[in-house]
Design a protein around this nucleic acid. Structure first.
Lengths: 358, 358
DNA sequence: TTGAAAGCGCTACCAC
DNA sequence: GTGGTAGCGCTTTCAA
């Protein structure tokens, strides 16, 4: 039925071993022989059997890319960049060393994260890229560390992208950590410098590194300006929620209820910021004249949606691409296996001063 | 080194065959035996070898999902919905029948589309979902038809999502086609009904079904209103470009240059519409008071970015999920293998009348 | 209900 | 440079 490597060998009048060598291009093969084999491949329309190949070679050409949410452009952009490094190799075009990137959406669920890792382990994946913040639960962290250790031991390359290094840094794991803390700090410093004193904070979901680091940066900036105000006050001006528009909308309403004299809102990311802006508009408040809004991530549509939005730019494409290259072993790991990706402030309007003057 | 099924069998004091049966749950196994096997699996931390399994069974648990651009939320949303149907099965948790969705970003390149299909064919994928418009090149269409035919013959399920059926409809291929023509027609009918007479059109990339169908709808509406104006005039008010923001920005500028008295612009999709709006703003024109803008796809951020945007809603989540179920064989194919997904008009502001009154 | 054993198609080692 | 061939780890008849 299906054409096998043996069929190709027969037609080319060579041994299966030679066909394999031609296809993999690992060993020297006489030019004439190679051409005969390639012609036979074309004639028979032969397609390599991946599973058989992976079984024999004890490794597959699959590379897993885990994201929290495919529908979120934050992840789409990173995953797309990683994938084009992984799969964009234009090999021989036939059966060359193309890798297949497997993008898996965990929905932010720890269980599914582990499930996908098991699935990838089962497939003997060549590498795994984990994007986005990590869940900060001791049990889950332990499970992840163990699982990643086993993957690494089996020869799978591990790359963390936009996620801090493992608690026990592993030589086999490369980490590209985003400077979420620094970005959060600079964002709030900027608002404080403009004269804002009552700033609400819409945080991401609890128990995530990203959420915690951005919030730490925010609070550090407040503290440095003498605006800390104690734990109770900080919590009063903080609302947690998922990284979506609706969460931002609801949270902004809640913040205004708790503190009607708010002059600025910092959101966990741009999508949340958009929702917050909508909530403000619906209450007849203008952005940024009445209330300034700041976001995070600088997604492509942010500037259109909120021209005055102040935000933080994370180099998603660059980071994703670098993660892809690390996964392919095509770039040297950073010193110590850890690199920090900068998070730069993007100021879109100088008008974002508090209503009373600043 | 690595734990194999034989190791599990030895520890559970059964044959490898029995372990296999327990893991796959296809054959009856005595409860006591099953439990012994499962305990051994846990004790040894056994993970099934996917390639070996796929080789022996002649099918893998991979499902390919092809998209044009992962960074585009249009595809992210569809792919995410498909993936959660495909991989969200919560099997035994151990080695159950979980499928692994492989999201592949082709960048809109016909070659990469074929390359990915070959890669998936090589992996003996259980199913393939093709999303987004098809490239309308006879050679490519023929190549695709042949390739899909071979995949189908090898037992791979094929699902088209947001793409018209193949020229020679194949029983083995299920198609969920978007009503791009109808959506485009209704959009322009709406503008015409408001009194617009000089309407610019920013089309998608040439040679794509989506581009052509949306444009056909637009032109049909113009013709029905007696505003057709001849081929030359239609071409004068049409500019093609990729589905991104920059393209919309540039195209809007070009359209205004060609026809300064434009009162409305219809864009190929919302992202393009956003760019067009930015271009209008930069020229001191207000949307929609001076120029109305219409988009397509109704992405989540569209309303925030352009509150007055008139657009067309495609049920991306529903379509993606349905495609996922079709790929899993968990939903009966539509009659004739073809279903049309509706495209509904979304009107966000009734103020979008032409400046002169209408 | 369980075991024995024959492959699945390919790779890589060892000869020549 | 090329051929022979022994597995890789699993599934699946066929018997028991």
């Amino acid at each position: 039925m299906t054409v096998t490597l043996a069929d190709v060998a027969a037609r080319a009048r060579v041994s299966p071993a030679t066909v394999s060598r031609v296809l993999n291009g690992n060993y020297p093969v006489a030019t004439a022989t190679r051409e005969r084999v390639l012609r036979a491949v074309d004639d028979l329309d032969y397609v390599l059997n991946g599973p058989a190949s992976s079984l024999a070679a004890a490794t597959s050409d699959l590379v897993g890319v885990l994201v929290h949410d495919l529908a979120d452009p934050f992840f789409g952009i990173m995953a797309g960049a990683a994938q084009s490094e992984i799969g964009g190799q234009e090999g021989t075009g036939r059966a060359g060393g193309e890798k297949l990137a497997v993008v898996c959406s965990t929905g932010g669920s720890p269980e599914r994260e582990l499930t996908y890792l098991t699935l990838l382990q089962r497939q003997r994946a060549a590498a795994v890229v984990l994007t986005g913040g990590a869940v900060e639960d001791p049990a889950h962290t332990a499970a992840m560390t163990a699982k990643l250790g086993r993957l690494a031991a089996a020869g799978t390359r591990i790359v963390l992208c936009g996620r801090p290094p493992l608690p026990e840094p592993d030589q086999a794991v490369a980490a590209l950590a985003f400077d979420n803390l620094g970005g959060g700090r600079r964002l709030t410093e900027h608002l404080v410098a403009l004269g804002h004193r009552r700033i609400g904070y819409i945080a991401g979901p609890v128990g995530r590194t990203t959420t915690r680091h951005r919030m730490q940066g925010h609070r550090a900036a407040l503290a440095a300006a003498g605006l800390g105000g104690g734990a109770a006050e900080q919590d009063r001006l903080t609302v947690h929620g998922p990284y979506d528009r609706r969460s931002g909308y609801d949270a902004a309403g809640e913040l205004l209820r708790r503190e009607p004299a708010l002059t600025a809102i910092v959101a966990a990311n741009d999508t949340v910021a958009l929702g917050a802006c909508a909530a403000l508009r619906d209450r007849g408040l203008r952005v940024p004249e009445d209330v300034s809004v700041a976001g995070f991530d600088d997604l492509p549509f942010s500037a259109d949606a909120v021209p005055a939005l102040t935000t933080v730019r994370l180099p998603l494409v660059e980071a994703g691409a670098r993660a892809g290259r690390l996964a392919m072993g095509r770039e040297a790991p950073p010193p110590g296996g850890i690199a920090t990706v900068p998070a730069d402030l993007v100021v879109r309007a100088s008008t974002a001063r508090p209503p009373g003057g600043g």
